[in-house]
Protein backbone atom coordinates (compact mmCIF):
# COMPACT_ATOMS: atom_id res chain seq x y z
CA UNK A 1 0.00 0.00 0.00
CA UNK A 2 1.16 3.48 -0.71
CA UNK A 3 -0.14 6.99 -0.16
CA UNK A 4 -0.76 9.24 -3.09
CA UNK A 5 -2.33 12.66 -3.48
CA UNK A 6 -4.04 13.54 -6.73
CA UNK A 7 -5.84 16.66 -7.81
CA UNK A 8 -8.96 15.34 -9.48
CA UNK A 9 -11.21 17.83 -11.24
CA UNK A 10 -9.73 20.55 -9.09
CA UNK A 11 -10.12 18.81 -5.75
CA UNK A 12 -7.31 17.36 -3.65
CA UNK A 13 -7.80 13.63 -3.08
CA UNK A 14 -5.62 11.66 -0.70
CA UNK A 15 -5.64 7.93 -1.24
CA UNK A 16 -3.95 4.91 0.23
CA UNK A 17 -3.68 2.43 -2.60
CA UNK A 18 -2.32 -0.93 -3.56
CA UNK A 19 0.67 -0.08 -5.72
CA UNK A 20 -0.86 -2.25 -8.44
CA UNK A 21 -3.93 -0.03 -8.68
CA UNK A 22 -4.20 1.69 -12.02
CA UNK A 23 -5.18 5.31 -12.28
CA UNK A 24 -8.38 4.02 -13.89
CA UNK A 25 -9.29 1.81 -10.93
CA UNK A 26 -8.31 4.54 -8.47
CA UNK A 27 -10.87 6.77 -10.17
CA UNK A 28 -13.60 4.17 -10.63
CA UNK A 29 -13.29 1.98 -7.56
CA UNK A 30 -11.75 4.24 -4.93
CA UNK A 31 -13.01 7.72 -5.82
CA UNK A 32 -16.20 6.29 -7.32
CA UNK A 33 -15.80 8.51 -10.35
CA UNK A 34 -17.25 5.93 -12.72
CA UNK A 35 -17.59 8.23 -15.70
CA UNK A 36 -14.20 7.00 -16.87
CA UNK A 37 -14.82 3.60 -18.43
CA UNK A 38 -12.96 0.30 -18.46
CA UNK A 39 -13.36 -1.29 -21.88
CA UNK A 40 -10.25 -3.40 -22.20
CA UNK A 41 -7.84 -2.55 -19.34
CA UNK A 42 -5.01 -2.97 -21.86
CA UNK A 43 -4.73 0.37 -23.65
CA UNK A 44 -6.50 -0.93 -26.74
CA UNK A 45 -9.83 0.91 -26.75
CA UNK A 46 -9.49 4.41 -25.31
CA UNK A 47 -12.62 4.26 -23.13
CA UNK A 48 -10.52 5.19 -20.08
CA UNK A 49 -9.08 8.37 -21.60
CA UNK A 50 -8.54 11.17 -19.05
CA UNK A 51 -6.34 14.24 -19.06
CA UNK A 52 -3.29 14.36 -16.82
CA UNK A 53 -1.75 17.81 -16.57
CA UNK A 54 -3.64 18.67 -19.74
CA UNK A 55 -2.51 15.70 -21.80
CA UNK A 56 -4.78 12.79 -22.65
CA UNK A 57 -3.69 9.32 -21.58
CA UNK A 58 -5.17 5.85 -21.23
CA UNK A 59 -5.68 5.72 -17.48
CA UNK A 60 -5.63 1.89 -17.53
CA UNK A 61 -1.99 1.93 -18.63
CA UNK A 62 -0.62 3.89 -15.73
CA UNK A 63 -0.46 3.21 -12.01
CA UNK A 64 -2.11 5.67 -9.66
CA UNK A 65 0.98 6.00 -7.44
CA UNK A 66 2.92 7.38 -10.42
CA UNK A 67 0.74 10.49 -10.35
CA UNK A 68 1.60 12.13 -7.04
CA UNK A 69 0.58 15.78 -7.30
CA UNK A 70 -0.78 15.45 -10.84
CA UNK A 71 -3.85 17.29 -12.07
CA UNK A 72 -6.37 14.79 -13.39
CA UNK A 73 -9.38 15.88 -15.42
CA UNK A 74 -12.10 13.30 -15.99
CA UNK A 75 -15.40 13.52 -17.82
CA UNK A 76 -17.03 14.59 -14.55
CA UNK A 77 -14.67 17.57 -14.52
CA UNK A 78 -15.80 18.84 -17.92
CA UNK A 79 -19.49 19.34 -17.27
CA UNK A 80 -22.61 18.06 -15.58
CA UNK A 81 -26.02 17.07 -16.98
CA UNK A 82 -27.34 20.50 -16.08
CA UNK A 83 -24.26 22.37 -17.29
CA UNK A 84 -22.72 20.59 -20.25
CA UNK A 85 -19.28 21.39 -21.65
CA UNK A 86 -19.58 22.54 -25.29
CA UNK A 87 -18.12 19.23 -26.46
CA UNK A 88 -20.66 17.28 -24.39
CA UNK A 89 -23.48 19.42 -25.79
CA UNK A 90 -22.22 18.87 -29.33
CA UNK A 91 -22.18 15.09 -28.80
CA UNK A 92 -25.82 15.25 -27.68
CA UNK A 93 -26.82 17.48 -30.61
CA UNK A 94 -25.08 15.31 -33.22
CA UNK A 95 -25.97 11.98 -31.57
CA UNK A 96 -22.27 11.23 -31.29
CA UNK A 97 -22.82 8.07 -29.28
CA UNK A 98 -25.16 5.15 -28.95
CA UNK A 99 -24.56 2.83 -26.00
CA UNK A 100 -22.60 5.61 -24.29
CA UNK A 101 -19.79 3.47 -22.95
CA UNK A 102 -16.95 4.85 -25.07
CA UNK A 103 -18.44 8.34 -24.90
CA UNK A 104 -16.59 9.87 -21.92
CA UNK A 105 -13.30 8.72 -23.45
CA UNK A 106 -14.27 10.09 -26.86
CA UNK A 107 -15.17 13.45 -25.33
CA UNK A 108 -12.00 13.69 -23.23
CA UNK A 109 -9.95 12.78 -26.29
CA UNK A 110 -11.80 15.25 -28.47
CA UNK A 111 -11.18 18.12 -26.06
CA UNK A 112 -7.50 17.20 -25.85
CA UNK A 113 -7.17 16.76 -29.63
CA UNK A 114 -8.30 20.32 -30.28
CA UNK A 115 -5.71 21.53 -27.78
CA UNK A 116 -3.02 19.41 -29.44
CA UNK A 117 -3.81 20.90 -32.84
CA UNK A 118 -3.78 24.39 -31.37
CA UNK A 119 -0.40 23.65 -29.80
CA UNK A 120 0.93 22.71 -33.23
CA UNK A 121 1.55 19.06 -32.45
CA UNK A 122 1.61 17.15 -35.76
CA UNK A 123 0.00 13.79 -36.45
CA UNK A 124 0.70 10.89 -38.82
CA UNK A 125 -1.39 12.57 -41.53
CA UNK A 126 0.03 16.09 -41.17
CA UNK A 127 1.56 16.89 -44.55
CA UNK A 128 3.74 19.76 -43.39
CA UNK A 129 5.34 19.75 -39.96
CA UNK A 130 6.51 23.34 -40.21
CA UNK A 131 3.13 25.06 -40.48
CA UNK A 132 0.28 25.46 -38.01
CA UNK A 133 -1.84 22.31 -37.83
CA UNK A 134 -5.41 22.49 -39.11
CA UNK A 135 -8.60 20.90 -37.79
CA UNK A 136 -9.36 19.02 -40.99
CA UNK A 137 -11.53 15.92 -41.04
CA UNK A 138 -8.48 13.79 -41.82
CA UNK A 139 -6.56 15.22 -38.87
CA UNK A 140 -9.47 14.69 -36.49
CA UNK A 141 -10.08 11.13 -37.67
CA UNK A 142 -6.42 10.25 -37.35
CA UNK A 143 -6.05 11.77 -33.90
CA UNK A 144 -9.28 10.19 -32.62
CA UNK A 145 -8.40 6.69 -33.84
CA UNK A 146 -7.29 5.51 -30.43
CA UNK A 147 -10.89 5.74 -29.23
CA UNK A 148 -12.94 2.82 -30.49
CA UNK A 149 -16.71 3.15 -30.81
CA UNK A 150 -18.14 -0.27 -31.60
CA UNK A 151 -21.61 1.23 -32.04
CA UNK A 152 -20.05 3.08 -34.95
CA UNK A 153 -20.92 6.69 -34.17
CA UNK A 154 -17.74 7.98 -35.84
CA UNK A 155 -19.44 10.03 -38.53
CA UNK A 156 -21.54 11.85 -35.91
CA UNK A 157 -18.63 12.25 -33.50
CA UNK A 158 -16.69 13.96 -36.25
CA UNK A 159 -19.58 16.36 -36.85
CA UNK A 160 -19.66 17.16 -33.12
CA UNK A 161 -15.92 17.83 -32.87
CA UNK A 162 -15.93 19.85 -36.09
CA UNK A 163 -18.68 22.07 -34.75
CA UNK A 164 -16.82 22.73 -31.50
CA UNK A 165 -13.57 23.33 -33.39
CA UNK A 166 -15.34 25.84 -35.63
CA UNK A 167 -16.67 27.68 -32.62
CA UNK A 168 -13.19 27.96 -31.15
CA UNK A 169 -11.44 29.58 -34.09
Amino acid sequence: MSKVTLTVNGANRELELDTRTTLLDALREHLQLTGTKKGCDHGQCGACTVMVDGQRINSCLTLAVMHEGDEITTIEGLGTPGNLHPMQAAFVKHDGYQCGYCTPGQICSAVAVLNEIKAGIPSHVSADLTVAQQTTAAELRERMSGNICRCGAYSNILDAITEVAGGQT
Binding site: R28, Q32, L33, T34, G35, T36, K37, K38, T74, I75, E76, L78, G79, T80, P81, G82, L84, Q88, A89, F91, V92, K93, D95, Y97, G100, Y101, T103, P104, I107
Partner: peptide
Protein backbone atom coordinates in the same frame (compact mmCIF):
# COMPACT_ATOMS: atom_id res chain seq x y z
CA UNK B 1 -35.29 14.83 -30.99
CA UNK B 2 -32.07 14.48 -29.00
CA UNK B 3 -31.82 11.41 -26.82
CA UNK B 4 -33.30 12.02 -23.39
CA UNK B 5 -30.44 10.05 -21.82
CA UNK B 6 -27.82 12.06 -23.71
CA UNK B 7 -26.84 14.39 -20.84
CA UNK B 8 -26.23 11.36 -18.61
CA UNK B 9 -24.17 9.49 -21.19
CA UNK B 10 -22.02 12.46 -22.16
CA UNK B 11 -21.21 13.37 -18.56
CA UNK B 12 -20.36 9.87 -17.41
CA UNK B 13 -23.32 9.80 -15.04
CA UNK B 14 -25.31 7.01 -16.70
CA UNK B 15 -24.73 4.05 -14.37
CA UNK B 16 -23.50 0.83 -16.01
CA UNK B 17 -23.54 -2.53 -14.27
CA UNK B 18 -20.08 -2.63 -12.70
CA UNK B 19 -20.37 0.94 -11.40
CA UNK B 20 -23.20 0.57 -8.92
CA UNK B 21 -21.38 1.61 -5.77
Amino acid sequence: VDRIDGPLKTTGTAPYAYERH
